[in-house]
Computed example of a mutant assay.
Amino acid sequence: MKLVAVSAGLSTPSSTRLLADRLAESARGELAAHDQEVETEVIELRELAVAVANNLVTGFPSPQLATAIDAVTGAHGLIAVTPVFTASYSGLFKSFFDLIDPDALTGKPVLVAATGGTARHSLVLEHALRPLFAYLHAAVVPTAVYAASEDWGSGGDEYTEGLPARIRRAGGELAALMAVRAVAQEPGEDDITALERQLSDLRFD
């Protein structure tokens, strides 16, 4: 299987890229623990910024941008991570997904995540990111992950989970959905056998 993470971070190093890497590793680890091989790829949108702008103006993607779009639409699972700009996703993030065919992500398992300087922006996951991918008919996992500056290195407390725990839970949910969709797309199985395998694969910790 192929897992693609899209990072819209602009700086180097980037907390957005770091979160994308950790989420991808979490999902990959869950799949590997259940004997599922997965190839991971991270797409850095800042490297495609000029190509994205040119595509919006001309209607034609550069070869590098076309390869990135093909990777996203052809993946078995997608992780989409953006920094918070003006209480929403970044313009570069939105512009890239504006170039995706509206039907290309139908049913695709997607994990949404965001980074920001303060926890006050965490609702961006629900009022901006989740509706965007619902419009694209993606299957967004229940747990979305927001990482504020103070979350890095935090273990949480008795009332809240720390960032590592949220990453593990979200990665497990994405892995489970990817496994289910892969089984559903396998040829030659009757509906009962496919359903039994799907229920078995859903038992990710």
Rank of each mutant, 00 (worst) to 15 (best):
L48S: 06
T82A: 09
T58Y: 06
L56F: 06
F85H: 15
T73I: 11
T82N: 11
L56Y: 07
Q64D: 04
L92E: 02
L45C: 09
T73G: 12
T82P: 09
G91M: 09
A75K: 07
Y89M: 09
A87C: 08
A66C: 12
I69Q: 14
E41P: 05
V38S: 09
P83T: 06
T86P: 00
I43K: 00
T58D: 11
G59H: 12
E39G: 11
A49P: 08
A68D: 11
A51I: 01
P63T: 14
A53W: 01
L45Q: 02
V84I: 03
L56G: 12
V84H: 01
A75P: 14
N54I: 05
V52H: 15
P63E: 10
A80R: 03
T58H: 12
V50I: 09
G91E: 00
T58I: 09
T73D: 00
E39A: 13
L45N: 05
A49S: 14
A80F: 10
F60P: 01
L56I: 13
T58C: 10
P61R: 05
E44Y: 13
P63C: 11
T67K: 14
D70N: 14
A87H: 11
L65S: 08
N54E: 14
A87R: 10
A87M: 12
G59C: 11
E47V: 04
V42I: 10
V38Y: 01
R46F: 11
S90P: 06
D70I: 03
Q64S: 01
L56T: 11
L45I: 01
V81H: 06
D70A: 15
V42K: 00
T67W: 06
E47C: 02
A51E: 05
V57N: 07
A51Q: 07
E44L: 10
H76C: 05
L65H: 07
E44W: 03
A66G: 15
V84A: 00
S62V: 08
T40C: 04
Q64I: 02
F60N: 11
L48M: 03
V38R: 00
V50S: 03
S88L: 04
V84C: 00
V38I: 14
V72F: 10
V42Q: 01
Y89C: 08
A49V: 08
S88V: 03
F85G: 08
E41A: 14
E41N: 13
L48A: 03
I43L: 04
V42Y: 00
P61I: 03
L78M: 09
V38A: 07
E41L: 14
G77V: 13
Q64M: 05
V72C: 12
L45K: 01
I79E: 14
D70W: 10
H76K: 04
A68R: 14
A68I: 11
A51W: 03
H76R: 09
T40F: 02
F60A: 12
N55T: 15
I69F: 06
T58F: 10
F85C: 09
V38N: 08
S62N: 07
N55E: 14
G77A: 08
E44R: 14
Q64T: 10
D70Y: 08
E44I: 02
S62Q: 14
S88F: 04
G59M: 07
L48C: 05
P61F: 00
V81R: 01
N55C: 15
T67G: 12
E44N: 07
T40Y: 06
Y89S: 06
P61T: 05
L65T: 02
V84M: 02
S62F: 08
G91V: 12
L45A: 03
Y89L: 07
S62M: 11
A53D: 01
V52W: 14
G74S: 13
H76W: 08
